[in-house]
Design a binder for these strands. Structure first.
Lengths: 334, 334
DNA sequence: CTGAAAGCGCTAACAC
DNA sequence: GTGTTAGCGCTTTCAG
């Protein structure tokens, strides 16, 4: 059924090694023979077996990508960026979703190793949790690049956004507009980005004298539903902050939904800012002021870093992307 | 560096075949020996080489997925559905974006064959264009399942949405609300879904006596930017329809943007309905009436169909998913 | 310029 | 129960 170089060799009447050389553009085959071989290979519908080539050369041409959830546009866009750098060089992406579950993460990491991927791009689930496995990846000599999040103490390349600076812009902007109290819808507390963004918020608020009451920090669980619940809870309090900081794109959807259901208006009833831009932020009514990461760019950079490691054994490199502040109309001047 | 069963065999003092049997849970190894072997394998950090196993058994445990654009939430959600069925059975997804470009599609298809994927899930770029290559896939005995779109004349399993019925619900709903003129923002004209949805629209409108002037059918090019341009053009006409049918989720964003820029209000200035639901439709102001596909479900079904083919050599099966009508507030009663 | 042969890591008869 | 051996499809010395 499947045609191999052996079949071609037989058909042409030469040795397999000659076929291999001819098909791979290696020197040492007469042009005439090469032509004949490629032609026959073509008409026999030959398709080289990468698993065999991979086994022989130790190169699979495949890259493992570990992300929390491909359905999150933020990560989907990152992946697209990665594809843009890897496709042109003949690499393909093996996709694994962790669902923010350390067990899935571990399992996926293992399979990626077994699949002998040439490199791994990962947005780790928790900081620290699977340190052992990432270490193992590195020990196995598999180039590893983190994106969006990192695992402390794992010495490898990464590209993350400057979360602190982004948060600072947001909070300072609120402060400039006269806000002195703030509510926060947070990411999963154990997540790297979650901690960084929350700590950043707390720090800047303290600096500027902005009040965050205890009850005003609500766990949005990184997703739409969680944020919906959190927002409803916040809005049920008698005493409310004048502004709300939503810590990612997906949660913004939940917050908007909650406000819609409660017939609250932005920014009249409360001002809202968001970390992350997304398809929808600019089309909401009113459009949401936010700091935008550039997911595609992040994917591009991460992929480039990894490729550099694979091809030229590149040194570790830490990239911090800036988050861009985008002023829109969701904040009231007080 | 890398530890193989050979190394383990040497370490334990047995033959490689024994190690293989022990590690794979095959019968014919004493419990004692098996325990010792697994233990040593573990502490040596052994990780089986799937490329070798794959070569030997002709099973790579990887599935090729061909989609237009992973950054489109619709497709991203489909992929997530696919993962849900394949991860539990130990398969992984190799992701390829076609960017709606037949050349990319062809190239990707070729690499997938070379990678010896065990099956392919594809949303083909154009109907008919790469018929030859999909035929080749089938000839190579690779199970193939189409989703979202099909290539006519290729005899294989597929799962698509009942586009016609969805369109019909939308148009009939408009008609019931008194609308007698309609504008359409269309998908790329060459696309399968594009043609089906447009023809469906035309047909139902004819039946119901709804007017669609020539200029009112505008090419939104399947994306946000194209739809933005198209919508602006439509709104620049002196004579405008009372309702607008937007043929997919992404284009809805462009249309909303255009209306925002022109300060037009839905449904006062024009009524809007959309094919596809998405994160944003229900949060727009007003929320958009639409027919919703269920992308994750589609991915689930497609994956299940493929898995059935792979595991039990399942017969071809054609699934048509219903699009669910969701009434919201974007249509005025006239 | 071309052929012969070894071997990548693993599995599966087939022996003993 | 365990060892021997022959490949899976390909690349790559080493000979000629």
């Amino acid at each position: 059924m499947k045609v191999t170089i052996k079949d071609i060799a037989k058909a042409v009447g030469v040795n397999v090694s000659t076929v291999s050389r001819a098909l791979n553009g290696k020197p040492g085959v007469s042009d005439e023979l090469r032509g004949k071989i490629t032609q026959i290979a073509d008409q026999m519908g030959y398709s080289p077996d990468m698993t065999a080539t991979g086994l022989k050369k130790g190169k699979t041409k495949i890259i493992g990508v570990l992300i929390p959830d491909i359905a999150n546009p933020f990560f989907a866009q990152i992946v697209r960026g990665m594809e843009k750098v890897f496709r042109p060089v003949g690499y393909h992406l093996l996709l694994c979703s962790t669902d923010e579950d350390p067990e899935h993460e571990e399992e996926n990491l293992k399979t990626l190793l077994r699949q002998r991927v040439e490199g791994i791009l990962a947005a780790p689930v928790d900081s620290g949790g699977n340190k052992v496995f990432y270490t193992r990846v590195l020990e196995n000599g598999i180039p590893l690049v983190f994106f969006d999040r990192i695992v402390p103490d794992i010495e490898t390349s990464y590209v993350i956004t400057d979360n602190e600076a982004g948060i600072r812009e947001l909070v300072e902007y609120l402060h400039k507009n006269g806000h002195e109290s703030l509510g926060v819808i947070t990411l999963r507390s154990r997540s790297f980005t979650g901690r960084v963004r929350l700590n950043g918020t707390l720090k800047v608020c303290k600096e500027l004298g902005i009040t965050i009451k205890d009850g005003w920090i609500l766990d949005g669980k990184s997703g739409q539903e969680g944020a919906y619940e959190a927002a409803r809870r916040l809005f049920s309090f008698e005493e409310r902050p004048t502004a709300l900081l939503v810590q990612n794109n997906l949660m913004m959807l939940g917050v908007m939904k909650a406000m819609k259901d409660l017939r609250l208006k932005v920014p009249d009833d409360i001002s809202v800012v968001c970390f992350d831009d997304s398809y929808w932020n600019q089309i909401f009514d009113p459009p949401i002021t936010c700091v935008a990461q550039e997911p595609e760019q992040m994917g591009l950079v991460a992929a480039t870093l990894l490729l550099d490691k694979i091809m030229h054994n590149g040194k570790n490199s830490k990239t911090i992307l800036k988050a861009h502040f985008i002023e829109r109309e969701s904040v009231a001047k007080i």
